[in-house]
Design a protein around this nucleic acid. Sequence first.
RNA 1: GGCGGGUUGGCGGAGAGGUUACGCACCGGAUUGCAAAUCCGUGAAGACCGGUUCGAUUCCGGUACCCGCCUCCA
Length: 469
Amino acid sequence: MTQIRLTNTRTRRKEDFVPIDPANVRLYLCGPTVYDRAHLGNARPVLVFDLLVRLLRHEYGDRAVTYVRNFTDVDDKINAEAQRRRAAGSDLSLEALIAERTEETIGWYHADMDALGALRPDHEPRATAYVGQMVAMTADLIAKGHAYEAEGHVLFDVRSFPDYGQLSGRSVDDMIAGARVEVAPFKRDPMDFVLWKPSSDDLPGWDSPWGRGRPGWHIECSAMSAALLGPHFDIHGGGIDLQFPHHENEIAQSCCAHPQAGFANVWLHNEMLQVEGKKMSKSLGNFFTVRDLLDRGVPGEVIRFVMLSTHYRKPMDWTETKAQEAEAVLRRWHGLVAGIEPATSPAPALIEALADDLNAAGAIAVLHDLAGREDAAGLLASARMLGLLLPGMGEWAQADGEAAGQIEALLAARLAARQARDFGRADAIRDGFAAAGVEVKDTAQGPEWSLAAGFNPARLADLARTHGT
RNA sequence: GGCGGGUUGGCGGAGAGGUUACGCACCGGAUUGCAAAUCCGUGAAGACCGGUUCGAUUCCGGUACCCGCCUCCA
């Protein structure tokens, strides 16, 4: 068994991972707010956790890991979208419009993450299904003196939790000095945050001891993780931008509600995604979703490869060049493992790389080594450990029947030209292949071909029209 | 203002206090009608300034620059 080591944001150190219960390793990942398509940055924590889950299952057994990722379906952006649809003339009720929107978005999310080869979590709780637990937890926090009611709101009293700020390395006083906090007059302390807030009649709401309202954002993860994983579990994660305030607030709520439990042992945060060296944002015009890339013909497997090639704790830069290089590598590997059965286990060096704080880039180097030694069975088994070269994943790298027919005809034409010593024509076909993104290797057994990155069916068809037989 | 991350060879990107990362590109050779692919081989690094050390790109301190968070955000 390989000792897994993970960098724990809470302690800022790389630590040996020791599960609370090796027969049931429990993880929670903060999932998406379901109001729109997942953008590329949303995919990063999903892939980090996907890799982690695969590793944990490899070490502790397939049934010994419980992976929870929530859907946030209570949110003002969702409400705004539903209100917009109703204003646009929809006859449906607000609740129905919200349900419609969230269902649609969850379907998109599943399709997009599936395309990246990400395993579905064991549980995907929706916030709306746990409002009762959130109300109960809120009431409990009031009873324990950690929260108070004010003007229909329930607020968490940060001064009642001395460790507040420990995760993100801030003190309440420092943050107030920074003073960019919404100052609501009914707050005892500017850093106090909302557990429950009132809903007007045109917003979704649930009955509660504090009137009709809806939960604040942070309480859902505290309630759902407790319900599905218990008050003490192994790993909790998300993007580094969630470290504060979301995760800080989760810790405050959960630790105060369950003082002896300890909440999450390990906090795992991935760094942010950039695009061509800049923050991805709508204003810079470099904002795109996973679906945008897939629709543009970038295979999910390529996106996954690029994502894995940068360590999760470093900023990851998405560039067109990386996508092309990844595509070329994957095409080569697909060719190498075609028709091969995977080895019984992944390469030990690959597991060691992953166990060392999910060093996926190091793991990919191991794959290059296996490929270089033409260990196709080992390459396949190891790549699958990373969620690459999975069955059915490489269809994008295969030529369809039409292209294959054209290529075969052109190869025959080239052979005929060479035998006739018409090297001008032979070279024209050769250059045409290169321009169309078809790689031809002349071996002792005759030509072998494969599609390269940037394969262009239209150019191939032109070439076939000009030189085909 | 507070907090955090980064800076490695032409590009991407890891690990390790002293021994080749790796991939792509480049260069030389083999091979080829010419190429491609392949094989063999050569180069090439760790922002800057100090410190610790026999020895640091790797540890410590400082400086510069880049990025992010502190407000919805993965």
